[in-house]
C-alpha cells in the first residue's frame, strides 16, 4: 500500500461527499422566490365573490393593488380543485375579519379555475369572509411567480412583497406575519 497516494485519492472524494451531504439538508422543492423586497406586481382584477360583512365588495368591482397604498394586503391564490386550499380556508377567513379594522385587506385570487366552481366551493366551505377575484388566463399568477396553489403573498404598506408562503397557511402564521408587518410600518406615514 502506498499510503500517500491512497490519502490523496481519499482527499479527492471528500468534496463530493460534502456536496451530497449538503444536498440532504436542502429541499429541492423549496425554491426561494425573488419577489420579497420588490414592489408587488400591480393588478386590476374584478370581484366574483363579494366576501361578507364589512369586507364585502360588489361583484364586478375592479380591485387595484395601487388603491391600497399604505395598507397591508394579503393575496391568497386558490382553486376549487386544490385539496390543500380546504385546509387553510377557515384560518384565512377568520384572520381576514380579525385584521380588517387594523387596515389589512385580504383578497382571494382564483387560479386556473372557473367562476361558477369557485362560487360553489365557497358555498360548500361555508363562505369566505373576504372578496375573491378572477385572474383571467393566470396572468397575475405568473406575475407573482406562482408555482402552484395555495400560495399566500403579504404586501407591505409601501407596496412591496414582504413574504411569500407556499402551501396551506395557519391562523398563527398569518397573525405572526401580519403583526410584524403592522409593527414595522407603524412609524411610516
Amino acid at each position: 500500500m502506498n499510503w500517500k497516494r491512497a490519502t490523496t485519492a481519499v482527499a479527492m472524494a471528500i468534496p463530493v461527499i460534502g456536496i451530497l451531504a449538503f444536498g440532504l439538508t436542502r429541499d429541492p422543492k423549496a425554491i426561494v422566490s425573488p419577489l420579497p423586497g420588490k414592489p408587488a406586481p400591480s393588478f386590476a382584477l374584478s370581484v366574483f365573490a363579494p366576501g361578507e360583512g364589512a369586507t364585502a365588495l360588489n361583484v364586478g368591482d375592479t380591485v387595484r393593488l395601487a388603491d391600497h397604498a399604505g395598507q397591508v394586503v394579503v393575496l391568497n391564490f386558490w382553486a376549487s380543485w386544490c385539496l390543500q386550499c380546504r385546509d387553510e380556508h377557515r384560518d384565512l377567513s377568520a384572520t381576514a375579519t380579525e385584521y380588517f379594522d387594523k387596515g389589512v385587506r385580504f383578497y382571494g385570487l382564483l387560479y386556473n379555475d372557473q367562476e361558477s366552481f369557485g362560487l360553489r366551493w365557497i358555498q360548500e366551505m361555508g363562505g369566505q369572509t373576504y372578496p375573491s377575484l378572477l385572474d383571467p388566463r393566470t396572468r397575475t399568477a405568473i406575475d407573482y411567480g406562482l408555482y402552484g396553489v395555495p400560495e399566500t403573498f403579504f404586501v407591505s404598506r409601501d407596496g412591496r412583497v414582504a413574504y411569500k408562503h407556499i402551501g396551506p397557511i395557519s391562523q398563527r402564521q398569518l397573525s405572526q406575519k401580519l403583526d410584524s408587518l403592522l409593527r414595522d410600518g407603524a412609524g411610516a406615514p
Binding site: 425554491i31 426561494v32 422566490s33 425573488p34 419577489l35 420588490k38 406586481p41 405568473i142 406575475d143 407573482y144 411567480g145 408555482y147
Partner: peptide, 8 residues
C-alpha cells in the same frame, strides 16, 4: 421570468 421565478 427570472424576475418572477428566480434563476431557477
Amino acid at each position: 421570468f427570472v424576475d418572477k421565478y428566480g434563476e431557477w
